[in-house]
């Protein structure tokens, strides 16, 4: 962002991190990349009973260019892998990735010719949610963990750790 040239690595930059991260972590725009049955559980976490809006992440953007968090929900196969990579590449920094469910995380029990053995072979992942499918509570827990992770980041180092 060029802030280091403006402010240096000073007191002011540190406080700016906190202000910006506070805004970022309570206003995730998610891109739901839903490919399989986990999607039903994702909708459940989204809808009024569990209400992901309480954490400021209720707003889905179906354009990757407007999204902050990529939720990869379900099995990703080799045929789909280039599409997922392209969606990720189209997202603007800062961006985060959540691997939702065991298939996205490790391929699950689909250890075969067609299935990618975990999306972290294709794109970097910030948070993994276990489960087949995960409980909505686990999804909300992951979101809170992601918020904690975001709150420790610096606006200066985001683009270098990719």
């Amino acid at each position: 962002m060029g802030l280091e040239t403006l402010f240096g690595n000073s007191f002011l930059t540190t406080r700016l991190d906190e202000a910006i991260n506070w805004g970022r972590k309570y206003s995730f725009f998610q891109y739901p990349f839903v490919t399989a049955c986990c999607g039903m559980e994702f909708m459940s976490a989204w809808a009024s009973t569990y209400d992901i809006a309480r954490f400021g992440a209720e707003y889905p953007r179906f354009s990757p260019r407007q999204a902050d968090v990529l939720f990869v929900v379900g099995t990703v196969n080799e045929k789909l892998a280039p599409v997922l990579r392209r969606v990720y590449d189209q997202m603007c920094d800062p961006k985060w990735v959540v691997s939702f469910g065991v298939c996205a995380t490790s391929g699950g029990f689909y250890d075969n010719y067609a299935t990618v053995q975990g999306i972290d072979k294709i794109i970097p992942v910030d948070i993994y949610i276990p489960g087949c499918p995960p409980r909505p509570e686990a999804v909300l827990d992951a979101l809170v963990k992601l918020q904690k992770k975001v709150s420790k980041e610096s606006v200066l180092d985001r683009e270098h750790d990719r």
């Binding site: 080799e78 045929k79 892998a81 280039p82 990579r85 010719y113 990618v116 972290d120 072979k121 294709i122």
Partner: peptide
């Protein structure tokens, strides 16, 4: 036997 369309990390 896997035939990835894009490079995999690892």
């Amino acid at each position: 036997g896997r035939q990835p369309r894009i490079d995999h990390a690892d």
